[in-house]
């Protein structure tokens, strides 16, 4: 019973974070900002759901069942790489940024991979 309660709490936390990630993807104004919501919120959301699954199956059956850790590990390893490749591609095709973005003039410098000039 207490196990079910704990897994339910983790499930609901995970679901809420997944929803937050998708809402961010839905409503944020430019591509670079939209990139933030899925890479972070969705990663934590899936992590929480997998933790719920681990807790549930470990207590339901004999012995521990931590297979789901592998999916968590994989997603935590690949999420930053995906984010990096997407932002690199976005810089390459010169996607527009929001008008009030800080250091907007540096986009071309970042795109060509130049170093920041020393003061």
């Amino acid at each position: 019973m207490i196990v079910e309660l704990i897994s339910s709490i983790f499930l609901i936390i995970g679901g809420v974070f997944l929803l937050v990630g998708s809402v961010g993807l839905f409503r944020l104004p430019d591509f670079y900002m939209r990139l933030h919501a899925p890479t972070k919120a969705s990663t934590l959301g899936i992590g929480a759901i997998l933790v719920a699954s681990i807790i549930f199956f470990s207590f339901k059956e004999e012995g521990i069942n931590i297979q789901e850790m592998l999916i968590t590990l994989f997603i935590f390893l690949t999420a930053p790489i995906t984010a990096h490749m997407l932002s690199k591609a976005a810089l390459h095709v010169r996607l527009p940024t929001e008008p009030h973005t800080l250091n907007r003039d540096k986009v071309e410098q970042i795109r060509t991979r130049q170093a920041e000039p020393k003061d």
């Binding site: 670079y32 990139l35 930053p80 932002s87 540096k106 795109r111 170093a115």
Partner: peptide, 30 residues
């Protein structure tokens, strides 16, 4: 470091300069 930054506080690392001296980060709120 770039992966850490992508996973934590409202920042995504976008690009590193060719000589590895600067890491360019996009932040949601600065």
């Amino acid at each position: 470091l770039a992966s850490t930054i992508s996973l934590t506080p409202g920042t995504v690392s976008t690009e590193v300069s060719e000589d590895y001296s600067t890491l360019y980060v996009h932040a949601l709120n600065v």
